[in-house]
Design a protein around this nucleic acid. Sequence first.
DNA 1: ATGGTCGTGTGACGA
Length: 256
Amino acid sequence: MKIVSWNVNSIKARLEHVKRYLKEEFPDVLMVQELKGLEFPKCEFENIGYKSHAVTQKAYNGVAIISQSPIDIILDHLPYDNEDKQARYMETNINGLRIINIYLPNGNPVPSDKYDYKLKWMKRLYRRLKYLRDNDISFIIGGDFNVIPEDKDCYNPSSWEGDALFLHETRSAYRSLINLGLTDAFRVFNIEDKQYTFWDYQAGSWQKNNGIRIDHFLLSPVIADKLQSCTINKTPRKWERPSDHTPIEIEISVES
DNA sequence: ATGGTCGTGTGACGA
């Protein structure tokens, strides 16, 4: 079973990219982030054999899951704060697998209410994932975490000092998630540095490979044992008018 | 070099 996460930076601007990707790679599940609008082109995906479900808001954020198999919605928001209306979380069952798609807050500038929100959001996420672990519910969580886990996951660690994606407190909160017993799927197969999923539009970042690794898949233990591969697919970042992120892909063996 | 680039929605803000 092939599952992919991709921050598309507007589903309207990237519709043809997403359709092309589905036709070329034919994933079982594609989770997308940063839809950036209320409208979601569900019919466009139906026409090429995909079901979908989106959680959207006006102008900002937004996540969706596009799947060959039916999607059961478990949650369409991150629990433990009823005041939080931002469209950043969805939790589903697909083929009996618990699949979670997140767009974790960026949090810049630091300090700010945005950074406070990011840390609170990460604590809420911890609480939800701990609940799933405590109740022996296996899961796959993927998405744009807006966290650079280690120095080797960015091109110039000193230039990221003080950034909300790289601060000690951010990475510490991320490690707490890992310490629930989760596996960073990418690092199972690749321990090299300079393995990025995002390159800024500015200053020739792509051409200079000045990127960061912030899109991740974390797997609970039973599913981690079934992981076959995890690959960053840089091809869509080379297309015309690309997203600033590129897809990260995992393959899970599922008994049939 | 105190910039540079996108996208939303149509002005300022977010990344």
